[in-house]
Every structure is written in structure tokens, then in C-alpha cells.
Design a protein around this nucleic acid. Structure first.
Lengths: 353, 353
DNA sequence: CTGAAAGCGCTTACAG
DNA sequence: CTGAAAGCGCTTACAG
């Protein structure tokens, strides 16, 4: 055999062996029509025989097709700036991959408005994206949405919180149970004897509660697992405004003089910090998330511990995982738990979100 | 301005703006010589101005340079087939990336022969690889080796066990402390009252002990953290042959009639299983690693629990992380802990290594 | 239904 | 010191 033929590889080799052009090979490879059954079979056989693996780098380079990744996360709310962090992560990833013809289409919904979520999922689907990054805030509606994604063969990744039993590509975020568990561990170091804890779930929505409850479960189970008896007072606060919260807290504190520590199960801890300050109650305060308002309260000594989970990283990794999967056909870990970081006044400056 | 110029991007755009050829742009981009200082500066300025980001896919495709990744892991020893698992992972990764002009050069050392390790590190360095995957079995020698890698700017990844404070790209493997902790948790469920535990560190080498001790530390601390009083008998066995082990075990068991469970801190648990069988002692036996010999003992009821850490995955991820970093300039997590899996007779068939 | 050519954004010889 | 051309392994029009 002449050497030249020997050297060929990829589509060229297939084309040569099948006595067709590489254009035809490409058509077979992508199941496009315009190939006679006979040629198709012949080419297919050779592809199989050679165990041909496409060069995905070349494929992406040559293709004019733009890949669309849709992101669906909450609007930055008036209450907390939390969601600006994931957004930054998304934009960092976008910056990195846009040169490979990947476009990121960003959709936002109102955390307190289920309808806005639904309408944004519709909008997303209409664009037929190649992948979706989603914060599955509204559970039922998220399930409905991801079911449609399954049907359409659109891969999707969850960040921030997880919905089990869904056919997702990956979940990237905290292990909610574990983070509650960690807080309990912290609490067990800080509190002594009969000092009690107040757990505050502040959320307007019961759906959202699902996630908060997981944290609470981890929190409670720590004490169970370790056979520690600890009085845990707990209230769910539906209204997020300062006044309502103040009222509730005043009431519960006056009823329970033994409370020495307050654990707020989400990022709204800074509101509680304000209330406690106003009430002149000096309690130990633990909450979640590295957002501006919380950092401020932390530096002023009004919050003692913040539990953080690199929300920017979560979103960044989410986009990159989708990119890897869609473009490079890489397998992705179904669970990508973020480290659970404890931030205090002393170390917050070094925290990289 | 004519539209055509507007459309350009990448090296072409730079070339056009600088009034040079793309060849010259390439020379500047890679700091190769053969460019006059004046042109170089001009081109550099434009690169900066445009904030040019190279298309790494195109770069890899066009480059004829083969990228060499070296792997340095133990030979499959006569005692245990453990290291055949990481080797499989390496080959799986190799299979996947060889089409992108990545070559994996495999070096092996004898786990019981420090000199072989040193000579293999020398051999590795002589080839000037672009990245190294390493099981840092011999600690001092690994430090010496990675110091040289640092000097030469060769990135390296650890699998199986970690050396802290090294400038490594990533560690991929178990959290040794945590896995000991997990075993202790298991033990606390299984044992009652005054029943005692025997911990066995079986290793010919004290260096290796470093890692085993971490597991032991996690094991012990579980009981401390949870204020559980538990008698823990512990022996270090230097000689790995059946007879020595048998002798030691017989002796310790006769001295401690209360021992009801044996925890072997590495994969040599199947040897202990044999001994116990021979001695007709029916104790609960826990050990590490999904290797053939252990699975056999597990199915025959001679081992009760195996703790596994997907050694194949570790190696696969190690290679892929290096590839991502070297070729695609992707940042890599400094820690990639594997899940700690508990394998029993009931679930071992479903385990994917 | 099929092929030949151009081009994706780079790198690599080669020629001057 | 510099440029023009070929080519990496694919995809994409276009022509027939």
C-alpha cells in the first residue's frame, strides 16, 4: 500500500476507504440526509470498523453553529444582593467560552412570584437552548420544566439547591443537610449547659422552605446523633420586613429567656442583626451567605458567623460543566458539592467567593 | 472603514492592525525570536489593546507538538492488585485524549523499594514531561521530585494520598482522616458496650505509615468527638507475610478476649481474613479497597465491610485535570475528594470503580 | 445523491 | 527579520 494512504486519519481515512468524499462521510456521521442507503451503510461499517472517534476540538472550530446555554436564576432582589454573586460567576464563564461560539442567554425571575418563574421557563424553552443552568426555586414548576427538557433532550444543571430524582446532568452547590449539621457543630462549641438556640426560617414562600428545612434537619440531627440535649426554639417568618421580624423576635425572646444564639437559615440574617441591635439584645448570631449587607454586619460585630458556599463558583462551574458536556462530550459528576466555609470578622477579607 | 476588515478577529485582526503577517504575530505571541524590537512592541501593544484571548482549540489542532503526561504509580505488587485499578483509569483517559496529540508515558516503581522510586522520578524528569500524575508514596523523595517540577514549571497532580504544603495542581483521592472517621462511625453502630476494636496497620514501610496514621487519627477522633469510650487495641505489622500476621494476631487476640472487630487500615485486609479463618475466629472485619482478593473474601463472608474510593476514577480525573490545565488553561480544584463508599456483600456487584 | 472547495483560528516549515 | 502558503480535522455552502 502506498504510504500516503496509510497516514490518513479521521474523516479522510473513512472517505478514502469508502471511496466517497469527506462531505458524504460528514453526512453519515451526523445522520443528515442526502446519502443513498447503500453508501450510508458502507460508510457506517467503516466508521465502526475503525472505531472512529471524532476530534471534538476540530468539530467546534469548524462549526458555525452557535451553542446556546440558558441560565435561569432569580433577579437580584431588594431584600438581598445574593444573586448578583452567581450572576458574576455566569459572566466570568461566558467571558471564557464565548470565543468558542458559546452564547449564554440569561433569564431572570422574581423569587416571590411563581408566575414570573413559569413565564421565564416558557421563554427559555422557546429559544431551544442546548443546555440550561437553573436554580430550581419553585419545586413543582421546576419539575415541570425539567420534564420538558428531558423530552427535548436538553441537559440541565442545578445550582443553589437540588431536586432529587430528576434526570439532571449535575447539581452544584451546598449539601444543605451538611451545612445545617456544621452549624450545629459550631453551636455545640459555643453554647454551654442549658443555653438555648433560636432557629429562624425567614421566607415568604413555603416552597422555598423545602430547602431551609433540609438545613434545619441537619441542624437538629447533629444533636440527635451526638446525644446532646439542646433546647431548640424555632419560628417560621413569612413576612420579610423589619417590623414583622422585630415583633416575632421580641415575642419569642421574651418567652424564652434562655436563648443565647440565633441561627438564621438563609441570607436574611442581616435583617435579624438589625433587629437585635435595635432591641439591644446581644446574642450570638449565625447565618448564611457572603453578601454585602451581611459582611457589613459581620465587621460591625452584629453577626458572628457566616456560612458561605461560593455562589459565584457554583454558577461558573455550572456553565463550564454544561460546556464540557455539550461541546466536548465529557462526563460530568452528578454531584458537585461546594466546600462549606465559615466566615468570621477575622477571615472575611480573604474569602474568595 | 471597509466591512471586511471589521469582521476579522484573532491573529488576523492583530496582523492587519499591526501591518504585519500572522506569522509575526504568532512569533510575538509565543515570545519566539526573529522579530525586531520595534515590531514586537507594536504587536504587543495591539494584543493588549484588543485583550486578545487565543482560541485554545485551534491552537491544539494546529500544533504539531505532542503533549506528554507522565504517570508515576506503583507496580501492581504480588501482595495486592490494587494498583491495576488506577492504571485502568489512566488508560481510559489516555484513550480519550490521545486523539488530541496527548501522550501518556507510564512509569512504575516498586512500593517496597525506595531506590526504584527515585530512579523512576529521574527517568521521568529526563523526558521533560508537560505534566505529571504522581502517587507520592515515599514522602521525602516525592518532595524532592516535586521541588524539581516546581523549578521546571511542570504541573503535577497527586492521587491516592496527599502531601500538604506542596505547590501541586490538585490532589485527587480520599480524605484519609474522614475515611477513618467514617469507619469509626460504622464501628459505633456495630459494637456494643465493652466490645473492643483491633486496629491493624500492615505496612513494611514507615513512610507509608504516614497515610495509615491519618486514617487512624480520624478513627480515634470520632470516639473522642462523640465522647464514646471504646477500647482500641492497635498493632503495627511490618512484615506482610501470612505467618507473621497470624502470629501477631493470635497473640493480641489471646491477650484481649474482648476484641470483636478488626479494622485493617489498608487493602491488605484479605490477608487478615485468611488468618482469622484459619484461626477459626469469627470477628467483624473492616478494611479498604475494591480489589479482587478482598471482593472474594467479602462474598465468602470473611470480610464484612470494604471502604472504597474509586481508584480508577482518581487516576482518570488526575489525567483529565492535567489535560485541562495544560491544553485548555483551565483552573483546577486544588482538592478533589472522592466519595467514601461502603461496600458489603449485598451491594458490591453494583460498585463502579 | 455526491464531490470539490473554502474556511474555522491557529502553527509550522520554508523562502527570501 | 518577515511573509506567504500549507495544513490540523472538521463543517458548510455551493455546484452539479
Amino acid at each position: 500500500m502506498p504510504k500516503k494512504e496509510e497516514q490518513l486519519s479521521g474523516v479522510k481515512e473513512i472517505a478514502m476507504r469508502a471511496n466517497v468524499s469527506i462531505g458524504t462521510v460528514d453526512r453519515v456521521l451526523h445522520n443528515r440526509n442526502g446519502v443513498s442507503p447503500k453508501t450510508r451503510e458502507k460508510v457506517k461499517a467503516i466508521i465502526k470498523e475503525l472505531d472512529y472517534q471524532p476530534n471534538l476540538l476540530a468539530r467546534r472550530l469548524a462549526s458555525k453553529k452557535v451553542i446556546h446555554i440558558a441560565t435561569l436564576i432569580p433577579l437580584v432582589s431588594k431584600d438581598t444582593s445574593y444573586w448578583s454573586l452567581p450572576l458574576q460567576g455566569i459572566m466570568r464563564a461566558e467571558e471564557e467560552i464565548k470565543r468558542y461560539n458559546i452564547e449564554v442567554d440569561k433569564y431572570f425571575f422574581d423569587q416571590d412570584d411563581k408566575d414570573s418563574f413559569v413565564s421565564q421557563t416558557r421563554k427559555t424553552l422557546r429559544k431551544k437552548p442546548d443546555g440550561v443552568l437553573l436554580s430550581p426555586d419553585f419545586i413543582e414548576e421546576s419539575v415541570a420544566f425539567t420534564n420538558k427538557c428531558n423530552q427535548l433532550g436538553i441537559p440541565y444543571v442545578f445550582i443553589d439547591s437540588d431536586i432529587e430524582a430528576q434526570n439532571r446532568l449535575s447539581y452544584i452547590g451546598p449539601d444543605l443537610y451538611d451545612s445545617g449539621y456544621l452549624v450545629a457543630n459550631l453551636v455545640s462549641y459555643v453554647l454551654r449547659g442549658r443555653e438555648a438556640v433560636l432557629v429562624l426560617n425567614i421566607s415568604q414562600r413555603t416552597y422555598k422552605h423545602h430547602h431551609l428545612l433540609k438545613k434545619e434537619e441537619g441542624f437538629r440531627n447533629y444533636f440527635k446523633d451526638n446525644a446532646i440535649r439542646k433546647k431548640i426554639e424555632k419560628i417560621d417568618i413569612r413576612k420579610g420586613d423589619n417590623l414583622s421580624i422585630e415583633k416575632e423576635i421580641t415575642s419569642v425572646l421574651s418567652r424564652n429567656k434562655d436563648i443565647r444564639l440565633v441561627f438564621v437559615t438563609n441570607s436574611r440574617v442581616f435583617i435579624v442583626a438589625k433587629c437585635l441591635k435595635k432591641l439591644k439584645k446581644k446574642l450570638i448570631l449565625i447565618g448564611f451567605d457572603f453578601i454585602e449587607e451581611n459582611i457589613k454586619a459581620l465587621t460591625e460585630g452584629d453577626i458572628d458567623f457566616l456560612i458561605c458556599q461560593k455562589p459565584g463558583e457554583q454558577a461558573y462551574k455550572g456553565i463550564m460543566s454544561l460546556y464540557q458536556h455539550i461541546v466536548l462530550n465529557r462526563q460530568v459528576d452528578r454531584m458537585q458539592f461546594m466546600p462549606i466555609d465559615i466566615i468570621t470578622k477575622e477571615n472575611y477579607q480573604f474569602y474568595k467567593n
